[in-house]
């Protein structure tokens, strides 16, 4: 539905910043709908006020008239625009609920997961690694760099170490508060390869303005190459440790035998 509506919209946000997530189009359409409807009334009312100021300006031989606004015709001047604005409100509320449901409620099952930890004034990203499970030895930890695979459904788990932050990725049209003591989960699906900005969108202290990071959206092959190059060696040493343990156990068994 939003893809269809998008064909008739001016694409205000997209003209400023590309869309890099699957749901960016929905936010953009909603933004356009609100801008058009609110803008229409804003300019109409502004024009009408200027017309009234000019029409009823002070002139010789014209006396000011006090209107109590009690007759039906006088009331209509308020009633008609009032009902029209209510119609516009409904036209805004319906897509708003739909977008909220699509982004916040109807969470698709993830292909990959990423843990995001905000602190004054940096972002730490825990990539699940090749096993696609967070909290394991092959997790790749990076500061101020998020590496993700294009056309893949991600689930993120957002935390804060200290104060409130906001994980904002403008190309995703995503803004999510990070609240200390809570893990807030959400999702995104990147659809456009490239390197983009991540920023903090909640005042968090003196360096809030420079609390930036970069998001790298790569093709599957490029992302896998990055994974292979950055997977920590600990998993190997872990395997080695197990091998050595087995060897020492073997030795012990042999000695006992």
């Amino acid at each position: 539905m939003f893809e269809f509506l998008d064909k008739f919209m001016p694409g205000i946000l997209e003209s400023l910043l590309p869309r890099a997530s699957s749901y960016a189009v929905q936010i953009d359409v909603l933004f356009d709908v609100i801008t058009i409807l609110v803008g229409f009334w804003f300019f109409l009312v502004l024009g009408y006020f200027f017309y009234l100021i000019f029409r009823y300006r002070q002139r010789d031989g014209h006396k000011a008239e006090y209107i109590s606004g009690e007759t039906h015709k006088q009331k209509q001047a308020i009633e008609i625009p009032h009902y029209l604005i209510l119609v516009c409100d409904v036209a805004i509320i319906i897509p708003t609920f739909l977008v909220w449901f699509n982004i916040k409620i109807d969470v698709p099952p993830p292909d990959e997961e990423v843990r995001i930890v905000a602190q004054q004034w940096a972002w730490t990203f825990y990539h699940a690694g090749e096993d696609k499970v967070l909290g394991t030895e092959d997790d790749i930890v990076s500061v101020n760099e998020l590496h993700i695979k294009n056309n893949t459904q991600y689930s993120y788990h957002l935390e804060s170490k200290d104060v409130m932050h906001n994980f904002s990725v403008p190309v995703f049209r995503l803004k999510q508060d990070a609240i200390p003591g809570r893990v807030i989960s959400g999702h995104f699906k990147p659809i456009l390869e490239g390197e983009w900005d991540i920023q903090c969108a909640e005042m968090c202290g003196v360096a809030h303005g420079i609390m930036g990071a970069r998001i790298f959206i790569k093709s599957e092959a490029e992302h896998n190459a990055w994974l292979a190059a950055n997977t920590p060696a600990t998993s190997d040493t872990g395997t080695l440790a197990i091998v050595n343990q087995n060897r020492s156990q073997e030795k012990k068994d042999r000695n006992n035998g």
């Binding site: 004054q120 004034w121 940096a122 730490t124 500061v143 360096a207 420079i210």
Partner: peptide
């Protein structure tokens, strides 16, 4: 100050950019 576990260092990291 760029280590993920260096909480205080990560605070200083952007400040040095000033």
């Amino acid at each position: 100050g760029a280590h993920a576990e260096d909480t205080a260092g990560l605070r200083m990291l952007p400040m040095a950019q000033t």
